[in-house]
Design a binder for these strands. Structure first.
Length: 579
DNA sequence: GCCGTTTTCGGCCCGACTGTTTTCAGTCG
């Protein structure tokens, strides 16, 4: 699973953390330089260990000094500068920097003036009221830090919330805010809008001419555990679940600039701002404006701002500064995959599966309601304990499907099954029975802890089987709950191309698997994809749209998504029959 | 530390909120 450069990137991340302490703040240009280098290394898709020092300096943000450190790592396994910094700042001291509200400046003073080296020291200093003796700190600072220590691990700077938990909270909040009087628009932004799989906090921007009542409602709404900030146009709260929510109110005419700014990413914003500066303009959360005259050039919508900067509008999930700005400038940016591109679903369970909740009829009716042109029902194969279905059950279902096909003539119904890939690549039923089905999607549902070689072998074996059309949720990870299986991604993707087996983009928010990293590599190799809802109840069908957003994050070309194809083409493809 | 260039040093994104002080530094995003 791990990319070849991950270890190097992790070391650079640590280097940045320690440099912030050493330099006394993240604003230091040297720190920024390390950050830029780390970002570039992270975004790099090739194997960095294969590059010479000279070749490394060709990378954006990598100069002579950084190139030397990279080579040093690959040749010696360590970086001397990092080792020196680790000696200067032991882990228990670095841990203090994770406490919200405690920045590098204060931290260094705590150490130098009060001899505080770890969390226990800090707690003792607070208890003895020693902190308030420092200039610039007072009683309130003691209380704030005391609370922050209590919450450590619950809401610290490193805490990440799975998108499956954050998204419903954000959608509800945005709906509530949008319904308030005087609110012209409300949108969640930040990493959630970019559709990262975990998020640090929820950022919401509201357009209104009267911020005060919105701020008041926000900090007093039910479920607020703590108010971190409460200003005229910006407030922050923590929910009972430990999720931080930041709310910002701007004038309606500034909404686009604000959502652009708060959606980020930071690196994407910096790229945009540099383009603005090149044109003699400035870009902030209020507007794109002329630097000399202050005259507003664009502010109301994101489209206008991108356009003024000579860029096509960049889809939110791509805003990570991994080449999207350059492509937008060159006019070679791919359009996003959208929900309206999708014409049907390919991974759907009904109550026939042990873990399904809606009947076949309810499910088909819901798909028809969504306007799908085709629907593939895929119950669990018989090898899945408790939840699997028998051959006999599938034969009966075939009759039921034929009856429903008459009632929903606009919807083409296919019978598929979700096969289980056994530890050695074995599959459910037998080849002859599987061939009777319209479609087989095969996934790993057990034996998550095999050695990588075995994991790779079992998936490759499944792909060799002629009845297997798609590999479902290829890594099997559950965000924040279970890591994916560890296999040779490139071997699997190459085999997918060789055997014409598609890779599923699973739209369930706990899965979003294939991961975006896998998608980027797959699309470069020319892999075919499907987007599946993995619905276990009729209401889950609509989450296919999240799969589209996730696909966009992986820069997937919509023409490579089989369930965006017209009915006849899709059905022929699904059955592996000639069109 | 990197970059660009009028090639060798100056610039590097920007604003809200808090706590403490009373004009601002620190933190955060």
């Amino acid at each position: 699973m791990a990319g070849p450069n991950d270890e190097l990137v992790a070391l650079f991340r640590e280097l940045v953390t320690l440099m912030i302490l050493d330099e006394g703040g993240p604003g230091s240009f040297r720190v920024r330089a390390y950050e830029n280098a780390m970002h570039e290394l992270k975004a790099h898709r090739g194997d960095l260990s294969a590059l010479t020092e000279k070749e490394l300096t060709q990378l954006d943000g990598v100069g002579k000094s950084t190139a030397k450190k990279i080579r040093e790592f690959f040749e010696t396994g360590t970086i001397a500068k990092l080792d020196a910094l680790r000696g200067k700042f032991p882990p228990e001291f670095v841990q203090l920097s994770k406490i919200p509200g405690l920045g590098p400046k204060t931290l260094m003073r705590l150490r130098d003036e009060l001899g505080i080296h770890n969390v226990d020291d800090l707690r003792a200093a607070i208890d003895s009221q020693a902190l308030r003796e420092l200039k610039g700190l007072g009683e309130k600072s003691e209380q704030k830090l005391s609370r922050a220590i209590e919450r450590m691990g619950l809401t610290g700077k490193d805490k990440r919330t799975p998108i499956a938990e954050a998204l419903p909270v954000a959608e509800r909040l945005v709906a509530d805010l949008a319904a308030m009087p005087g609110v012209q628009a409300a949108r969640y932004c930040g990493s959630l809008r970019r559709f990262r799989e975990t998020i640090g906090d929820i950022d919401i921007v509201v357009a209104s001419t009267d911020a005060a009542p919105i701020m008041e409602w926000f900090v007093a709404m039910p479920g607020v555990q703590e108010v971190i900030g409460h200003g005229e146009t910006k407030s922050s709260i923590v929910t009972g679940a430990g999720l931080q929510v930041d709310l910002r109110v701007v004038e309606p005419g500034q909404f686009g600039a604000a959502t652009l700014y708060f959606t980020g990413s930071k690196a994407h914003n910096i790229k945009l701002r540099q383009r603005a500066i090149e044109r003699g303009w400035t870009l902030n959360e209020y507007a794109l404006s002329d630097a000399a005259t202050g005259k507003v050039i664009a502010a109301a919508t994101e489209d206008e701002i991108y356009d003024a900067l000579g860029l096509a509008t960049i889809p939110e999930p791509m805003r990570e500064d991994t080449g999207e700005v350059e492509r937008a400038a060159a006019g070679t940016l791919l359009p996003p995959v959208t929900a309206s591109d999708l014409r049907g679903d390919v991974h759907v369970h009904t109550s026939l599966s042990g873990d399904g909740h809606s009947t076949l009829e309810q499910t088909v009716a819901a798909a028809a309601e969504l306007g799908w042109e085709y629907l593939v029902i895929t119950e669990h194969g018989e090898n899945l304990a408790i939840n699997g279905v028998s051959r006999e059950q599938l034969r009966v279902q075939r009759t039921d499907l034929a009856a429903l096909a008459d009632r929903f003539p606009q919807l083409t119904l296919l019978q598929g099954v979700e096969l289980n890939i056994g530890p050695h690549g074995e599959l459910d039923y037998d080849a002859a029975f599987r061939a009777e089905l319209d479609f087989c999607i095969a996934g790993v549902h057990s034996h998550f802890d095999l050695e990588p070689e075995q994991q790779t072998a079992r998936v490759l074996a499944a792909m060799e089987d002629p009845t297997v059309r798609v590999i479902a949720h290829p890594t099997g990870r559950l965000i924040g709950r279970r890591p994916g299986i560890d296999f040779d991604i490139d071997a699997v993707l190459s085999k997918a191309v060789e055997t014409d087996t598609a890779i599923e983009i699973n739209a369930a928010l706990w899965r979003l698997d294939a991961t975006d990293d896998l998608l980027l590599r797959a699309r470069d190799l020319g892999v075919t994809f499907v987007i599946g809802s993995d619905a276990h109840r009729a209401g889950d069908l609509e989450r296919l749209r999240w799969g589209a957003v996730h696909a966009t994050r992986g820069w997937v070309d919509v023409t490579a998504v089989a369930n965006s194809w017209p009915r006849d083409k899709f059905v022929a493809w699904a059955r592996r029959s000639q069109p």
